[in-house]
Amino acid sequence: MARRIDQQQVRKVAKLSRLDLTDHELEEFTSQLGAILEYVEKMNKLNTDNVEPLAHCLPVSNVFREDCVKESIGTERALANAPERDESFFKVPKILDDGSGA
């Protein structure tokens, strides 16, 4: 049976996820991910011709809150776990290639 995923693909996914994998990890994760994919592959044996695509696994919809302001936790508590801060800001390594923004 052909391998579900090869090292090349794992390397790409790791890069997209900003993960720096060692050669050993690369090998380990490739076989683990392959096993997971193989397991899930069993689903493809089912006939789903008359099954609606599933958008969510819970049979629930429309869970809303009203547009009310709740108290925030405050700057000090927000920054309490930050490895580094600069006054009221989180301090992070300089962002090069800033393609940020929604």
Binding site: D86, S88, F89, F90, K91, V92, P93, K94, I95, S100
Partner: peptide, 13 residues
Amino acid sequence: NLHATGNFSQVDL
């Protein structure tokens, strides 16, 4: 993200 001075950036969430 605010790119102030120095070799770091500031983040306001």
